[in-house]
């Protein structure tokens, strides 16, 4: 575009001939889809940052205990799990870590599906698969932590 044409685009604009009103691109109107009328994406954005900070502590602590301290992975066994889950502190640690990590990961994957799956149907079904797997895994993990029985045998 040359300089002269950009001048002519605003030519004649004045008090008697105002420039046309341009709607802000993200202004909400009656035509805004229902799914984008809430602040869901804002809360998701905040959640990723807050849960991420907590997860740095919980997950790196978990890796330190399971893979580094006291013989690393070699010492992990049913008896080791029983010893840790005898304490409500470690049960709470693992429960919070499970929920935050699964929701953090699910929201991350939701973003990635939205970015790369172009067809509406593909996007919808990939997300349904994601949500199903997430709910199943969170519930299974929660059930296991709460119903753990050291004397199962």
């Amino acid at each position: 575009m040359s300089a002269t044409s950009s001048v002519s685009a605003t030519e004649g604009i004045g008090p008697d001939n105002p420039a046309p009103l341009v709607e802000p691109p993200r202004a909400r109107s009656a035509r805004t889809p229902k799914s984008t009328r809430t602040n869901f994406e804002l809360y998701g954005w905040v959640f990723m940052r807050l849960s991420g900070i907590v997860l740095v502590v919980l997950v790196l602590g978990h890796l330190l205990i399971q893979l580094v301290l006291d013989g690393g992975v070699s010492k992990v066994s049913f008896a080791f799990v029983a010893g840790r889950w005898a304490s409500p502190f470690w049960m709470a640690w693992d429960l919070i870590m499970l929920w935050l990590a699964m929701l953090h990961g699910a929201n991350g994957l939701r973003t990635i599906i939205n970015d790369y799956a172009q067809r509406d149907g593909t996007r919808f079904w990939l997300k349904m698969l994601l949500y199903t797997a997430t709910v199943f895994t969170v519930l299974l993990g929660t059930l296991v932590i709460f119903t753990f029985d050291p004397n199962i045998r």
């Binding site: 049913f78 008896a79 799990v81 499970l98 990590a101 699964m102 990961g105 797997a133 895994t137 299974l140 993990g141 059930l143 296991v144 119903t147 753990f148 029985d149 199962i152 045998r153």
Partner: peptide, 15 residues
Amino acid sequence: LFVHVLDTALVRVSP
């Protein structure tokens, strides 16, 4: 994480 929750769930099956 999916795999890890599944393998840990085996504590409910047997030691």
